[in-house]
Amino acid sequence: MIRILFALINVLIALIIAPLFDGIERKIKARLQNRRGPPILQTIYDLSKLYKKENIFLGSRLHFIAPIIVFANTLIALLITPSFTPASVYFIGDIILLLYLLSSSSLFLVLGSISSRNPFAITGSNREIMLSIGSKLLLALSIGIILWNKGSLLIIHLFPLIPPLVPSSILSFIVFIIIAYIESMRLPFDIPEAEPEIAGGILIEYSGPNLALILHSIYLKRILFASFIINFLFYGSILSTGFLGIIIYSIIFLALLFIVSIAFTVIEVFCGRYRIDHALKFIKNLSLLMGVIILLALYGY
């Protein structure tokens, strides 16, 4: 039961921390561009205001319900991922459930968005689905190879990366970092949203609590991927026995999360947006590289 409690604590912390990190990132971005930037808590203010607003029903039930399902999927994904505390709900094959939850959230995001019948939303959704196929390919390849080297189907057995010191795992991990970047809808890859180009794309017809749910789940997804990166590097290497140990663990984890977030933000500032075909070509080339990594893994390296 303790484990479930800790897994729930993970989710609860993530719910608050995720928008906070977005606020910090906005501040850093502004600083790098020589602007003053909004206060750090701005994203939390935004979300809480959006949650309080009235929902608008556009005549399509799917459009109305989709954000809730997206949010729920992201929360379950967080429940089975160890993050702030090294505990999660786990069972054999949970990694596959995680991948399908992520697919499911992008599926419902797209379905809901197209149901609004807005041409911009349709364009954005089309891009989102192509990008998500591509990143799903890379995600499957990289996670699959790490799984292969680790010989387990459990998320917690994936971490840490190193004990079998094989080049294919390390290369896959590098690819995984790139995917974490793509999946978190940051600048060269925020093609489905593309504020200046298609006015928010998939988000265009959402407002109020529904918009807040989608934004919140995007922030949560960022935390999810970032905690995967940190777990790959440091899981189990920090002392985490006893109540104090867990608290220390959480604090160190937060610090590491902060570093990952800063690194991603700095990259984001220096990037322009990709066109969708460029992004897909990038993914395709990366997947050809993954082919080489598969060969390495096949020969036991």
């Binding site: 596959i96 991948l99 399908y100 697919s103 992008s106 599926l107 797209v110 379905l111 197209i114 959704s125 689905i129 192509m130 998500s132 196929i133 799903k136 390919l137 499957a140 390849l141 699959g144 190879i145 799984l147 292969w148 598969i294 096949l298």
Partner: peptide, 19 residues
């Protein structure tokens, strides 16, 4: 494992097809 990975990718394609 490789076949399983390709199957996962095909799962992504299936989602696109039915969307």
């Amino acid at each position: 494992v490789i076949l399983g990975i390709i199957l996962l990718f095909a799962g992504g394609l299936t989602i696109a097809i039915y969307i």
